[in-house]
Amino acid sequence: MSPIEPIFDKKYECLFCKKPFISKKVRSRFIKVSHFDSDFFPIYQSEDANPLHYHIMVCPSCGFSFSEDFSKAFPPGAKETITHEVCSRWVPHNFSGKRSIHQAIQTYKLAILCGSLKKEKHITMAGIYMRVGWLYRLLENQEQEQRFLKLALKEYEDSLYYGDYTRTQVTEIRLLYLIGEVSRRLNDRQKAVQYFSQVIEKQRQSVEPNIIEMARERWREIRDNS
Rank of each mutant, 00 (worst) to 15 (best):
M1V: 13
P3N: 10
E5W: 11
K11V: 06
L15A: 10
K18H: 14
S23L: 07
F30K: 08
K32L: 08
K32C: 02
H35M: 04
F36S: 13
S38D: 14
S38N: 11
D39Y: 06
Y44C: 05
E47F: 03
D48Y: 14
H53M: 10
I56F: 04
C59P: 02
C62F: 05
G63D: 03
F64A: 06
F66G: 04
S67H: 08
S67W: 09
F70H: 00
S71Y: 08
S71R: 14
A73F: 13
P75D: 03
P76S: 12
P76L: 13
K79P: 01
E80P: 03
E80D: 15
T81S: 04
T83S: 14
E85N: 02
E85A: 02
C87I: 11
C87Y: 05
C87S: 15
W90M: 04
P92I: 15
H93C: 11
F95M: 09
I101A: 04
H102L: 05
H102P: 00
Q103Y: 04
A104E: 02
Q106G: 07
L110H: 01
G115V: 07
S116V: 12
K118S: 02
E120H: 02
I123D: 04
T124W: 06
A126E: 01
G127I: 03
V132A: 05
G133P: 02
Y136Q: 06
L138K: 12
E140V: 08
E140K: 15
N141G: 05
L151F: 08
E155A: 08
E157C: 05
Y161L: 15
Y162N: 13
T166F: 15
Q169M: 15
T171N: 09
I173H: 04
L178S: 05
I179V: 12
I179P: 00
E181S: 08
V182F: 00
S183N: 07
L186Y: 00
D188I: 00
V193H: 01
Q194Y: 00
Q198Y: 10
Q198N: 09
I200T: 04
E201Y: 09
Q205M: 11
E208G: 04
N210A: 15
R216K: 14
W219Y: 10
E221A: 05
I222V: 10
